[in-house]
Design a protein around this nucleic acid. Structure first.
Lengths: 348, 348
DNA sequence: GTGAAAGCGCTAACAA
DNA sequence: TTGTTAGCGCTTTCAC
């Protein structure tokens, strides 16, 4: 171990003192320089930066965090990192966060409240400055903890009456109405809906939007054509199976997410149905893969980068809140219809 | 702000002193209790735990890290979080790490050396105790930094002569030989190979294994049937396009990864080719989605959980190295052939 | 403008 | 077995 005062010291990661010594200033000046304090003369500032370069020094984040009380870490909790929607979202969120000097802690709740609780616990231990809860409807187990610890948070589709909480609202309405109208314009009247898990707020919101959109289009909903799935490919296959078992068949299926739609595409193929000739299929999310399904999936695009940016912005405003300024507490993320090859006119 | 000594203090996150006071012991005893030191009597230990519960206290990781020099953070760098192989890998790695009390920092290099360098820099600032570099062949830009800072690391398919570096070798040979044999047994002699980017070690290793496997099967390789792709779906489509432009056609295609194979499946479909009747296709990775392609993809399975476990184990051994014990420096991850529906006999 | 010094919350020597 | 105390590397008053 290197000890101070020995002549021959082992090469050690340089610390603020090393820099101060080399630049012949006090450690306070080094600290000020690094943090861009205006109260440092150009002369000294230059010397300090030179020393920093020379030593290849960088500050110890732990020490910095300890004294400043700021970790510069944001947490992001997603539902399932294995669903392609989420890696794309995480990627965007990370890019933005890193660009602003934050690090991120990612957790996948896998719809397990116990796992979720544990995630939050770990994030609190790491003193995150904010948490984006993008589980789309499984927020309950975590909110108390977060609220209790006064951690800024942003929730998708969940309004929480807490000064530290912001909300991201997703405007499914626009996209879903456009999708239903698109199908109606093509001549479809028999439209089925493969819903997401009813315990998810987002899934219920989407389902309700489907209902109002159908009404708006002057179409009636056949109750048995609305079946609850689980937002996975397998779930889509199973859901479509239920549809096929019915006496009367729809000519189009709108799905609560892309993975479900991909499952339908697959199940339809296995049954010898041609998409879109025999059946039109619409997804929701527009994951990267949607472009490459067979046929390419018509879907309602939900922009990951827009969502990520809203989430980051919400947290940043909370974290860096100035006494004076009001902050934005609600963000709206838009959706839009992307027409590809999986929709067409119904058979006459 | 809450100040000590005022009678009415604002509720504050409890610290070790709060606990010590409540349990009527010294802070050292609290620390020992938390860290499971055997040198604490049951009597006091019980009092301490009680106080901890009562206050809902948890230690400040930053302070802990600062003094102990251990952050309990591991870094994992992947090539592209958007390729389904990686989220599955990250998920496994995280589970194991969390189970052992580590937090993880994820970064996606996107094959950009500048991004990679920046990732490592950030990880060093956060004082990671180890980094798993699972970029499969783009390690160069980071190794120097890591080596220089004496951070344990584990590299996939790259032997680095450094005491802090471990290597994970992937036994592609077994899987690729099995795949070629499988095709040969079905009667294929005209086998094409859609390679990965030649700048990736892993891609070259796979390609070489293909060559030796072909030789072992007594088959000759048509040079123009070996085309370099980029491990993406689009790349697979393009690569297959090149194959189709040739005068003579192969009856089977082995791909350097699943995404490429999925691209081939798609391109073949667009050309009206039936898989496997007109063309057999084999992938490599066995991503979750492989099971759901049309037809389900025959592929060479590379276990993510096995890989994740090896990576974690390598880092843990380095991080928690005991003076005495030797540690394992090389790990081997196996591959195996998974036969599904995309391979069959060639047309007579 | 600049520096000296007091901690941030914890662990680990050292004492008792 | 338990407590006292000296820092870990940094930011931030408070003097100068």
């Amino acid at each position: 171990m290197a000890r101070k005062g020995t002549r021959k010291t082992v090469a050690k990661t340089p610390d603020i003192r090393t820099v101060a010594a080399l630049a012949k200033v006090s450690i306070a000046t080094v600290s000020r320089t690094i943090n861009g304090s205006p109260a440092v003369s150009d002369r000294l500032s230059k010397r300090v930066w030179q020393a920093i370069q020379q030593l290849n020094y960088f500050p110890n984040t732990q020490a910095r965090g300890l004294v400043s009380g700021r970790s510069r870490i944001l947490g992001i909790i997603v539902e399932n990192i294995t669903n392609p929607f989420f890696p794309e979202l995480i990627q965007s969120f990370e890019e933005i966060a890193v660009a602003h000097g934050y690090e991120i802690l990612v957790s996948s709740s896998n719809s397990d409240p116990a796992v979720l609780t544990n995630c939050v616990r770990r994030m609190l231990e790491r003193k995150v400055e904010g948490v984006a809860v993008l589980t789309f409807g499984e927020e309950e187990p975590v909110m108390d903890q977060l609220v209790h610890h006064d951690v800024p948070m942003v929730l998708a589709e969940f309004r929480l009456d807490d000064p530290k909480a912001s909300t991201i609202l997703l405007d499914y309405t626009t996209g879903i109405h456009a999708a239903v109208k698109h199908l109606a314009d093509l001549g479809h009247t028999k439209i089925a809906y493969l819903a997401g898990p009813h315990k998810l707020h987002s899934a219920m919101t989407r389902e309700n939007d489907f209902r109002t959109a159908m009404e708006a289009a002057g179409l009636v909903i056949e109750q048995q054509w609305v079946v609850e799935c689980n937002h996975t490919l397998k779930g889509g296959v199973a859901g479509f199976g239920k549809l096929r078992a019915l006496a009367s068949q729809p000519t189009a299926v709108l799905c609560s997410n892309d993975m479900t739609a991909i499952g339908v595409l697959r199940a339809a193929y296995m049954e010898g149905l041609h998409v879109p000739q025999d059946l039109s299929v619409v997804g929701l999310d527009d994951i990267d893969f949607a472009e490459f399904t067979l046929p390419p999936l018509t879907t309602i695009r939900l922009s990951r980068s827009e969502l990520a940016r809203a989430a980051f912005e919400a947290l940043r405003q909370q974290a860096e809140e100035t006494e004076s300024g009001k902050i934005q507490r609600e963000f709206l993320v838009s959706t839009s219809l992307v027409v590809r090859g999986s929709t067409g006119k119904p058979k006459a």
